[in-house]
Design a protein around this nucleic acid. Structure first.
Lengths: 237, 237
DNA sequence: CAGCATCCGCTTTGATACTG
DNA sequence: CAGTATCAAAGCGGATGCTG
Protein backbone atom coordinates (compact mmCIF):
# COMPACT_ATOMS: atom_id res chain seq x y z
CA UNK A 1 0.00 0.00 0.00
CA UNK A 2 0.92 3.57 -0.48
CA UNK A 3 2.98 4.77 -3.38
CA UNK A 4 6.50 3.59 -3.78
CA UNK A 5 8.56 6.15 -5.70
CA UNK A 6 11.69 4.17 -4.98
CA UNK A 7 15.02 5.43 -6.24
CA UNK A 8 15.56 4.89 -9.95
CA UNK A 9 12.02 3.67 -10.12
CA UNK A 10 10.38 5.83 -12.69
CA UNK A 11 8.43 3.14 -14.45
CA UNK A 12 5.67 4.90 -16.31
CA UNK A 13 3.41 7.69 -15.21
CA UNK A 14 0.77 6.93 -12.65
CA UNK A 15 2.86 4.26 -11.12
CA UNK A 16 1.47 4.99 -7.70
CA UNK A 17 -0.32 1.77 -7.09
CA UNK A 18 -3.47 3.22 -5.65
CA UNK A 19 -2.65 1.43 -2.49
CA UNK A 20 -4.72 -1.67 -2.11
CA UNK A 21 -3.47 -4.52 -0.07
CA UNK A 22 -6.20 -7.07 -0.45
CA UNK A 23 -6.93 -10.33 1.27
CA UNK A 24 -7.88 -11.60 -2.16
CA UNK A 25 -10.95 -13.36 -0.82
CA UNK A 26 -14.33 -13.29 -2.53
CA UNK A 27 -16.02 -12.53 0.77
CA UNK A 28 -17.97 -9.55 1.92
CA UNK A 29 -16.20 -9.28 5.26
CA UNK A 30 -12.77 -9.53 3.67
CA UNK A 31 -13.72 -6.85 1.15
CA UNK A 32 -14.84 -4.54 3.92
CA UNK A 33 -11.58 -5.11 5.76
CA UNK A 34 -9.64 -4.46 2.57
CA UNK A 35 -11.06 -0.95 2.73
CA UNK A 36 -11.42 -0.05 6.41
CA UNK A 37 -9.30 -2.72 8.06
CA UNK A 38 -6.01 -0.84 8.00
CA UNK A 39 -4.58 0.64 11.13
CA UNK A 40 -6.09 4.05 12.01
CA UNK A 41 -8.80 3.95 9.33
CA UNK A 42 -11.76 3.37 11.64
CA UNK A 43 -10.43 5.87 14.16
CA UNK A 44 -10.33 8.51 11.46
CA UNK A 45 -13.92 7.63 10.67
CA UNK A 46 -14.77 7.94 14.37
CA UNK A 47 -13.41 11.48 14.30
CA UNK A 48 -15.57 12.39 11.34
CA UNK A 49 -18.65 10.83 12.94
CA UNK A 50 -18.02 12.64 16.20
CA UNK A 51 -17.12 16.04 14.85
CA UNK A 52 -18.48 16.24 11.32
CA UNK A 53 -16.33 18.05 8.82
CA UNK A 54 -12.74 18.37 10.01
CA UNK A 55 -9.59 20.06 8.89
CA UNK A 56 -6.34 18.15 8.79
CA UNK A 57 -5.17 19.61 12.06
CA UNK A 58 -8.43 18.86 13.81
CA UNK A 59 -8.04 15.24 12.81
CA UNK A 60 -4.48 15.09 14.01
CA UNK A 61 -5.47 16.58 17.31
CA UNK A 62 -8.21 13.99 17.74
CA UNK A 63 -5.90 11.12 16.83
CA UNK A 64 -3.02 11.35 19.27
CA UNK A 65 -0.27 8.94 18.33
CA UNK A 66 -0.83 9.02 14.58
CA UNK A 67 2.11 9.89 12.41
CA UNK A 68 1.43 12.77 10.10
CA UNK A 69 2.22 10.82 6.96
CA UNK A 70 -0.10 8.05 8.17
CA UNK A 71 -2.94 10.52 8.38
CA UNK A 72 -2.22 11.89 4.94
CA UNK A 73 -1.95 8.39 3.47
CA UNK A 74 -5.13 7.14 5.07
CA UNK A 75 -7.10 10.19 4.04
CA UNK A 76 -6.00 9.57 0.48
CA UNK A 77 -6.99 5.92 0.70
CA UNK A 78 -10.36 6.68 2.23
CA UNK A 79 -11.03 9.37 -0.32
CA UNK A 80 -10.19 7.01 -3.13
CA UNK A 81 -12.49 4.39 -1.60
CA UNK A 82 -15.35 6.88 -1.65
CA UNK A 83 -15.65 7.07 2.12
CA UNK A 84 -14.23 10.51 2.74
CA UNK A 85 -14.58 13.60 0.59
CA UNK A 86 -12.03 16.37 0.49
CA UNK A 87 -13.46 19.79 -0.02
CA UNK A 88 -10.63 21.89 -1.32
CA UNK A 89 -11.45 25.36 -0.17
CA UNK A 90 -11.45 28.33 -2.54
CA UNK A 91 -8.16 30.23 -2.90
CA UNK A 92 -8.47 33.17 -0.54
CA UNK A 93 -8.44 31.79 2.97
CA UNK A 94 -9.88 28.51 4.01
CA UNK A 95 -8.31 25.10 4.46
CA UNK A 96 -9.38 21.79 2.98
CA UNK A 97 -12.25 20.13 4.81
CA UNK A 98 -12.69 16.40 5.18
CA UNK A 99 -16.08 14.84 5.71
CA UNK A 100 -17.80 11.49 5.37
CA UNK A 101 -19.60 10.67 2.15
CA UNK A 102 -22.97 8.89 2.35
CA UNK A 103 -21.13 5.65 1.83
CA UNK A 104 -18.89 6.60 4.72
CA UNK A 105 -21.89 7.39 6.90
CA UNK A 106 -23.03 3.82 6.36
CA UNK A 107 -20.10 2.76 8.49
CA UNK A 108 -21.92 4.00 11.58
CA UNK A 109 -23.25 0.52 12.20
CA UNK A 110 -19.75 -0.91 12.12
CA UNK A 111 -18.39 1.74 14.45
CA UNK A 112 -21.39 1.35 16.73
CA UNK A 113 -20.90 -2.41 17.13
CA UNK A 114 -17.18 -2.10 17.75
CA UNK A 115 -17.79 0.69 20.26
CA UNK A 116 -20.39 -1.38 22.05
CA UNK A 117 -18.16 -4.43 22.14
CA UNK A 118 -15.24 -2.41 23.42
CA UNK A 119 -17.10 -0.81 26.33
CA UNK A 120 -16.04 -3.46 28.87
CA UNK A 121 -12.43 -2.88 27.90
CA UNK A 122 -12.40 0.67 29.18
CA UNK A 123 -10.51 0.79 32.44
CA UNK A 124 -11.19 2.94 35.46
CA UNK A 125 -8.27 5.26 35.21
CA UNK A 126 -6.89 7.23 32.34
CA UNK A 127 -3.37 6.03 33.13
CA UNK A 128 -1.08 7.33 30.50
CA UNK A 129 -3.85 7.10 27.95
CA UNK A 130 -5.02 9.93 25.79
CA UNK A 131 -8.57 11.15 26.13
CA UNK A 132 -10.78 13.53 24.21
CA UNK A 133 -14.27 14.51 25.24
CA UNK A 134 -15.69 14.00 21.78
CA UNK A 135 -14.75 10.32 21.87
CA UNK A 136 -17.28 9.96 24.65
CA UNK A 137 -19.69 12.06 22.62
CA UNK A 138 -19.35 9.66 19.72
CA UNK A 139 -20.05 6.66 21.91
CA UNK A 140 -23.11 8.33 23.41
CA UNK A 141 -24.34 9.41 20.01
CA UNK A 142 -24.02 5.91 18.62
CA UNK A 143 -25.26 3.85 21.55
CA UNK A 144 -27.96 5.85 23.31
CA UNK A 145 -31.47 6.74 22.30
CA UNK A 146 -34.22 9.02 23.48
CA UNK A 147 -36.74 6.95 25.42
CA UNK A 148 -39.43 9.62 25.27
CA UNK A 149 -39.25 11.17 21.81
CA UNK A 150 -42.49 13.06 22.24
CA UNK A 151 -41.68 14.77 25.51
CA UNK A 152 -40.00 18.15 25.79
CA UNK A 153 -36.29 18.03 24.95
CA UNK A 154 -33.70 17.69 27.68
CA UNK A 155 -30.00 18.43 27.84
CA UNK A 156 -27.44 16.65 29.97
CA UNK A 157 -23.93 17.84 30.55
CA UNK A 158 -21.28 15.20 31.00
CA UNK A 159 -17.98 16.09 32.59
CA UNK A 160 -15.61 13.24 32.02
CA UNK A 161 -12.30 14.61 30.88
CA UNK A 162 -10.92 18.05 30.48
CA UNK A 163 -13.63 19.35 28.26
CA UNK A 164 -17.30 18.86 29.12
CA UNK A 165 -19.77 17.37 26.68
CA UNK A 166 -23.44 17.98 26.07
CA UNK A 167 -26.03 15.37 25.15
CA UNK A 168 -29.31 16.76 23.90
CA UNK A 169 -32.50 15.12 22.70
CA UNK A 170 -33.58 16.39 19.34
CA UNK A 171 -36.72 15.07 17.72
CA UNK A 172 -36.40 11.49 18.88
CA UNK A 173 -32.72 11.26 18.09
CA UNK A 174 -29.81 12.21 20.26
CA UNK A 175 -27.09 14.67 19.54
CA UNK A 176 -23.85 14.96 21.38
CA UNK A 177 -21.23 17.62 21.08
CA UNK A 178 -18.24 18.82 23.04
CA UNK A 179 -18.65 21.91 25.14
CA UNK A 180 -20.68 22.97 28.18
CA UNK A 181 -24.45 23.44 28.24
CA UNK A 182 -26.54 26.36 29.37
CA UNK A 183 -28.78 25.32 32.25
CA UNK A 184 -28.65 21.62 31.47
CA UNK A 185 -31.35 19.47 33.07
CA UNK A 186 -28.71 17.31 34.69
CA UNK A 187 -24.96 17.18 35.12
CA UNK A 188 -22.92 14.01 35.42
CA UNK A 189 -19.31 14.13 36.56
CA UNK A 190 -16.96 11.18 36.71
CA UNK A 191 -14.68 8.94 34.72
CA UNK A 192 -15.64 7.99 31.17
CA UNK A 193 -16.10 4.44 32.37
CA UNK A 194 -18.56 5.32 35.09
CA UNK A 195 -20.40 7.73 32.85
CA UNK A 196 -20.91 5.23 30.07
CA UNK A 197 -21.59 2.51 32.63
CA UNK A 198 -24.52 4.52 33.89
CA UNK A 199 -25.85 5.58 30.52
CA UNK A 200 -25.64 2.11 28.99
CA UNK A 201 -27.47 0.49 31.86
CA UNK A 202 -24.59 -1.48 33.30
CA UNK A 203 -24.76 0.57 36.50
CA UNK A 204 -27.82 2.01 38.16
CA UNK A 205 -27.71 5.50 39.61
CA UNK A 206 -27.13 4.39 43.19
CA UNK A 207 -24.32 2.06 42.28
CA UNK A 208 -22.70 4.63 40.03
CA UNK A 209 -22.81 7.21 42.80
CA UNK A 210 -21.35 4.73 45.26
CA UNK A 211 -18.47 4.26 42.84
CA UNK A 212 -17.78 7.95 42.68
CA UNK A 213 -20.01 9.36 39.98
CA UNK A 214 -21.49 12.73 40.86
CA UNK A 215 -24.95 13.55 39.63
CA UNK A 216 -26.85 16.78 40.00
CA UNK A 217 -30.11 18.07 38.60
CA UNK A 218 -33.03 16.04 37.35
CA UNK A 219 -32.37 12.30 37.50
CA UNK A 220 -35.37 11.61 35.25
CA UNK A 221 -33.55 13.36 32.43
CA UNK A 222 -30.83 10.78 32.78
CA UNK A 223 -33.31 7.93 32.82
CA UNK A 224 -34.73 9.30 29.63
CA UNK A 225 -31.56 8.70 27.64
CA UNK A 226 -30.31 5.71 29.57
CA UNK A 227 -30.17 2.89 27.05
CA UNK A 228 -29.49 -0.59 28.40
CA UNK A 229 -27.52 -2.50 25.82
CA UNK A 230 -28.26 -6.10 25.04
CA UNK A 231 -25.38 -7.80 26.72
CA UNK A 232 -24.86 -10.57 24.25
CA UNK A 233 -25.22 -10.38 20.51
CA UNK A 234 -27.01 -13.68 20.84
CA UNK A 235 -30.39 -12.03 20.38
CA UNK A 236 -30.57 -12.38 16.64
CA UNK A 237 -29.28 -15.14 14.42
CA UNK B 1 3.51 -7.96 20.05
CA UNK B 2 4.09 -11.66 20.12
CA UNK B 3 6.71 -13.18 22.33
CA UNK B 4 10.30 -12.75 21.46
CA UNK B 5 12.39 -15.56 22.92
CA UNK B 6 15.37 -14.21 21.06
CA UNK B 7 18.72 -15.89 21.34
CA UNK B 8 20.66 -15.01 24.48
CA UNK B 9 17.62 -13.18 25.64
CA UNK B 10 16.78 -14.68 28.95
CA UNK B 11 16.01 -11.48 30.79
CA UNK B 12 13.77 -12.49 33.63
CA UNK B 13 10.89 -14.88 33.65
CA UNK B 14 7.67 -13.84 32.02
CA UNK B 15 9.40 -11.49 29.70
CA UNK B 16 6.98 -12.32 26.95
CA UNK B 17 5.26 -9.05 26.51
CA UNK B 18 1.78 -10.42 26.16
CA UNK B 19 1.62 -8.83 22.80
CA UNK B 20 -0.41 -5.68 22.94
CA UNK B 21 0.16 -2.91 20.52
CA UNK B 22 -2.26 -0.35 21.75
CA UNK B 23 -3.51 2.91 20.34
CA UNK B 24 -3.24 4.18 23.88
CA UNK B 25 -6.56 5.96 23.67
CA UNK B 26 -9.17 5.90 26.42
CA UNK B 27 -11.89 5.15 23.92
CA UNK B 28 -14.13 2.17 23.51
CA UNK B 29 -13.60 1.89 19.76
CA UNK B 30 -9.83 2.12 20.09
CA UNK B 31 -9.88 -0.54 22.80
CA UNK B 32 -11.89 -2.85 20.58
CA UNK B 33 -9.46 -2.30 17.72
CA UNK B 34 -6.55 -2.96 20.06
CA UNK B 35 -7.96 -6.46 20.42
CA UNK B 36 -9.56 -7.35 17.08
CA UNK B 37 -8.12 -4.70 14.80
CA UNK B 38 -5.02 -6.58 13.73
CA UNK B 39 -4.76 -8.07 10.31
CA UNK B 40 -6.51 -11.45 9.99
CA UNK B 41 -8.14 -11.36 13.42
CA UNK B 42 -11.70 -10.78 12.27
CA UNK B 43 -11.31 -13.26 9.44
CA UNK B 44 -10.32 -15.92 11.95
CA UNK B 45 -13.42 -15.02 13.92
CA UNK B 46 -15.48 -15.31 10.74
CA UNK B 47 -14.20 -18.87 10.33
CA UNK B 48 -15.22 -19.77 13.86
CA UNK B 49 -18.65 -18.20 13.40
CA UNK B 50 -19.21 -20.00 10.13
CA UNK B 51 -17.92 -23.40 11.08
CA UNK B 52 -18.00 -23.60 14.86
CA UNK B 53 -15.11 -25.44 16.47
CA UNK B 54 -12.16 -25.79 14.11
CA UNK B 55 -8.83 -27.49 14.07
CA UNK B 56 -5.72 -25.60 13.07
CA UNK B 57 -5.75 -27.05 9.60
CA UNK B 58 -9.43 -26.26 9.08
CA UNK B 59 -8.68 -22.65 9.88
CA UNK B 60 -5.74 -22.51 7.55
CA UNK B 61 -7.82 -24.01 4.78
CA UNK B 62 -10.52 -21.41 5.32
CA UNK B 63 -8.03 -18.55 5.38
CA UNK B 64 -6.18 -18.81 2.08
CA UNK B 65 -3.25 -16.44 2.03
CA UNK B 66 -2.50 -16.49 5.74
CA UNK B 67 1.01 -17.38 6.81
CA UNK B 68 1.16 -20.22 9.27
CA UNK B 69 3.01 -18.22 11.88
CA UNK B 70 0.40 -15.47 11.55
CA UNK B 71 -2.35 -17.95 12.31
CA UNK B 72 -0.45 -19.32 15.31
CA UNK B 73 0.28 -15.81 16.60
CA UNK B 74 -3.27 -14.58 16.19
CA UNK B 75 -4.75 -17.64 17.83
CA UNK B 76 -2.50 -17.03 20.80
CA UNK B 77 -3.49 -13.38 20.96
CA UNK B 78 -7.18 -14.12 20.64
CA UNK B 79 -6.95 -16.83 23.25
CA UNK B 80 -5.21 -14.47 25.62
CA UNK B 81 -7.86 -11.84 24.97
CA UNK B 82 -10.56 -14.31 25.98
CA UNK B 83 -12.11 -14.48 22.54
CA UNK B 84 -11.00 -17.93 21.47
CA UNK B 85 -10.61 -21.03 23.60
CA UNK B 86 -8.20 -23.80 22.79
CA UNK B 87 -9.38 -27.24 23.77
CA UNK B 88 -6.29 -29.34 24.02
CA UNK B 89 -7.51 -32.80 23.26
CA UNK B 90 -6.70 -35.78 25.46
CA UNK B 91 -3.57 -37.77 24.57
CA UNK B 92 -4.84 -40.73 22.54
CA UNK B 93 -6.08 -39.34 19.28
CA UNK B 94 -7.71 -35.99 18.83
CA UNK B 95 -6.30 -32.64 17.83
CA UNK B 96 -6.65 -29.27 19.55
CA UNK B 97 -9.93 -27.56 18.83
CA UNK B 98 -10.44 -23.81 18.64
CA UNK B 99 -13.80 -22.23 19.32
CA UNK B 100 -15.27 -18.87 20.23
CA UNK B 101 -15.85 -18.07 23.87
CA UNK B 102 -19.09 -16.27 24.84
CA UNK B 103 -17.15 -13.02 24.69
CA UNK B 104 -16.05 -13.99 21.21
CA UNK B 105 -19.62 -14.76 20.18
CA UNK B 106 -20.48 -11.18 21.09
CA UNK B 107 -18.45 -10.13 18.08
CA UNK B 108 -21.22 -11.36 15.80
CA UNK B 109 -22.66 -7.88 15.68
CA UNK B 110 -19.33 -6.46 14.56
CA UNK B 111 -18.87 -9.11 11.90
CA UNK B 112 -22.47 -8.70 10.77
CA UNK B 113 -22.13 -4.96 10.23
CA UNK B 114 -18.85 -5.28 8.38
CA UNK B 115 -20.29 -8.06 6.23
CA UNK B 116 -23.33 -5.98 5.44
CA UNK B 117 -21.25 -2.94 4.58
CA UNK B 118 -18.95 -4.98 2.39
CA UNK B 119 -21.71 -6.55 0.30
CA UNK B 120 -21.56 -3.91 -2.45
CA UNK B 121 -17.84 -4.52 -2.79
CA UNK B 122 -18.28 -8.07 -3.99
CA UNK B 123 -17.64 -8.20 -7.70
CA UNK B 124 -19.30 -10.33 -10.32
CA UNK B 125 -16.49 -12.65 -11.07
CA UNK B 126 -14.21 -14.63 -8.86
CA UNK B 127 -11.17 -13.45 -10.79
CA UNK B 128 -8.11 -14.72 -9.09
CA UNK B 129 -9.86 -14.51 -5.77
CA UNK B 130 -10.24 -17.33 -3.34
CA UNK B 131 -13.69 -18.54 -2.45
CA UNK B 132 -15.14 -20.90 0.14
CA UNK B 133 -18.78 -21.87 0.37
CA UNK B 134 -18.92 -21.35 4.09
CA UNK B 135 -18.05 -17.68 3.68
CA UNK B 136 -21.37 -17.31 1.94
CA UNK B 137 -22.94 -19.41 4.66
CA UNK B 138 -21.61 -17.02 7.29
CA UNK B 139 -23.01 -14.00 5.46
CA UNK B 140 -26.42 -15.67 5.10
CA UNK B 141 -26.42 -16.75 8.72
CA UNK B 142 -25.62 -13.25 9.92
CA UNK B 143 -27.78 -11.18 7.59
CA UNK B 144 -30.91 -13.16 6.87
CA UNK B 145 -33.89 -14.05 9.02
CA UNK B 146 -36.87 -16.33 8.86
CA UNK B 147 -39.89 -14.26 7.90
CA UNK B 148 -42.38 -16.94 8.96
CA UNK B 149 -41.01 -18.46 12.14
CA UNK B 150 -44.20 -20.38 12.87
CA UNK B 151 -44.55 -22.08 9.51
CA UNK B 152 -43.10 -25.46 8.67
CA UNK B 153 -39.34 -25.34 8.19
CA UNK B 154 -37.83 -25.01 4.74
CA UNK B 155 -34.43 -25.75 3.34
CA UNK B 156 -32.75 -23.98 0.44
CA UNK B 157 -29.67 -25.18 -1.31
CA UNK B 158 -27.32 -22.54 -2.63
CA UNK B 159 -24.76 -23.44 -5.26
CA UNK B 160 -22.33 -20.60 -5.56
CA UNK B 161 -18.84 -22.00 -5.62
CA UNK B 162 -17.41 -25.45 -5.70
CA UNK B 163 -19.22 -26.72 -2.66
CA UNK B 164 -22.96 -26.23 -2.23
CA UNK B 165 -24.43 -24.72 0.90
CA UNK B 166 -27.67 -25.34 2.74
CA UNK B 167 -29.76 -22.71 4.49
CA UNK B 168 -32.44 -24.09 6.80
CA UNK B 169 -35.01 -22.43 9.00
CA UNK B 170 -34.90 -23.68 12.56
CA UNK B 171 -37.28 -22.34 15.14
CA UNK B 172 -37.36 -18.78 13.93
CA UNK B 173 -33.63 -18.56 13.41
CA UNK B 174 -31.62 -19.52 10.37
CA UNK B 175 -28.85 -22.01 10.13
CA UNK B 176 -26.44 -22.29 7.28
CA UNK B 177 -23.90 -24.96 6.69
CA UNK B 178 -21.77 -26.17 3.80
CA UNK B 179 -22.86 -29.26 1.98
CA UNK B 180 -25.82 -30.32 -0.19
CA UNK B 181 -29.36 -30.77 1.05
CA UNK B 182 -31.73 -33.70 0.72
CA UNK B 183 -34.81 -32.65 -1.21
CA UNK B 184 -34.41 -28.94 -0.53
CA UNK B 185 -37.49 -26.79 -1.12
CA UNK B 186 -35.57 -24.65 -3.56
CA UNK B 187 -32.19 -24.53 -5.25
CA UNK B 188 -30.36 -21.36 -6.23
CA UNK B 189 -27.35 -21.50 -8.54
CA UNK B 190 -25.20 -18.54 -9.49
CA UNK B 191 -22.37 -16.32 -8.41
CA UNK B 192 -22.05 -15.36 -4.75
CA UNK B 193 -22.88 -11.81 -5.71
CA UNK B 194 -26.13 -12.69 -7.44
CA UNK B 195 -27.09 -15.09 -4.70
CA UNK B 196 -26.62 -12.58 -1.91
CA UNK B 197 -28.12 -9.86 -4.08
CA UNK B 198 -31.33 -11.86 -4.28
CA UNK B 199 -31.42 -12.91 -0.65
CA UNK B 200 -30.67 -9.45 0.71
CA UNK B 201 -33.36 -7.82 -1.35
CA UNK B 202 -31.16 -5.86 -3.72
CA UNK B 203 -32.43 -7.92 -6.63
CA UNK B 204 -35.86 -9.37 -7.15
CA UNK B 205 -36.29 -12.87 -8.53
CA UNK B 206 -36.98 -11.76 -12.09
CA UNK B 207 -34.03 -9.43 -12.23
CA UNK B 208 -31.74 -11.99 -10.66
CA UNK B 209 -32.80 -14.58 -13.22
CA UNK B 210 -32.26 -12.12 -16.02
CA UNK B 211 -28.72 -11.64 -14.75
CA UNK B 212 -28.00 -15.34 -14.81
CA UNK B 213 -29.18 -16.73 -11.52
CA UNK B 214 -30.88 -20.11 -11.82
CA UNK B 215 -33.72 -20.90 -9.49
CA UNK B 216 -35.62 -24.15 -9.19
CA UNK B 217 -38.21 -25.41 -6.75
CA UNK B 218 -40.53 -23.36 -4.58
CA UNK B 219 -39.96 -19.63 -4.95
CA UNK B 220 -41.99 -18.93 -1.81
CA UNK B 221 -39.32 -20.68 0.22
CA UNK B 222 -36.87 -18.10 -1.05
CA UNK B 223 -39.22 -15.25 -0.23
CA UNK B 224 -39.44 -16.62 3.25
CA UNK B 225 -35.80 -16.01 4.03
CA UNK B 226 -35.27 -13.04 1.78
CA UNK B 227 -34.28 -10.19 4.08
CA UNK B 228 -34.09 -6.74 2.58
CA UNK B 229 -31.33 -4.84 4.31
CA UNK B 230 -31.74 -1.22 5.28
CA UNK B 231 -29.56 0.44 2.71
CA UNK B 232 -28.22 3.20 4.87
CA UNK B 233 -27.28 3.02 8.52
CA UNK B 234 -29.13 6.32 8.80
CA UNK B 235 -32.08 4.67 10.47
CA UNK B 236 -30.91 5.07 14.04
CA UNK B 237 -28.89 7.85 15.57
C1' DC C 1 1.54 28.23 10.77
C1' DA C 2 -1.51 24.28 7.98
C1' DG C 3 -0.81 20.52 5.04
C1' DC C 4 1.58 17.60 3.57
C1' DA C 5 6.29 14.75 1.65
C1' DT C 6 10.76 12.49 2.78
C1' DC C 7 13.90 9.98 5.30
C1' DC C 8 15.13 6.64 8.92
C1' DG C 9 14.92 3.00 12.30
C1' DC C 10 11.98 -0.24 14.26
C1' DT C 11 8.05 -3.71 14.08
C1' DT C 12 4.89 -6.47 11.79
C1' DT C 13 3.85 -9.31 8.10
C1' DG C 14 4.48 -12.99 4.66
C1' DA C 15 6.84 -16.96 2.32
C1' DT C 16 9.42 -20.75 3.11
C1' DA C 17 11.71 -24.31 5.59
C1' DC C 18 11.99 -27.15 9.39
C1' DT C 19 10.47 -30.08 13.67
C1' DG C 20 7.96 -33.11 17.29
C1' DC D 1 -0.99 -32.32 11.99
C1' DA D 2 0.26 -28.39 14.44
C1' DG D 3 2.87 -25.65 14.85
C1' DT D 4 8.16 -23.05 15.43
C1' DA D 5 12.38 -20.80 13.09
C1' DT D 6 14.22 -17.85 9.82
C1' DC D 7 14.55 -14.01 6.99
C1' DA D 8 13.09 -10.56 3.46
C1' DA D 9 9.78 -7.09 2.60
C1' DA D 10 6.48 -4.26 3.73
C1' DG D 11 4.13 -1.24 7.28
C1' DC D 12 4.44 2.01 10.92
C1' DG D 13 5.97 6.02 14.13
C1' DG D 14 8.87 9.92 14.77
C1' DA D 15 11.54 13.60 13.23
C1' DT D 16 12.32 16.82 9.96
C1' DG D 17 11.95 19.56 5.70
C1' DC D 18 9.43 21.82 2.14
C1' DT D 19 5.76 24.88 0.27
C1' DG D 20 1.83 27.97 0.21
Amino acid sequence: MREKSKHLDLKLQLNYDGGVRSYGQHCSLAKALDVVGDRWSLLIIRELIARGACRYTDLREGLPGIATNMLADRLRDLEQAGIVSREDAPPPVARPLFRLTPRGEELRGVVRELTRWGLPLIGDSIDGEAFRGHWLAAAALLLLKDNAPDAAPVAIEVRAGEEPMLIVTAGGALQARPGPGVNPDAIISGTPRLTMGLLTGMLDIERAQALGLEISGDASAIERIRTPLPLVGAGAS
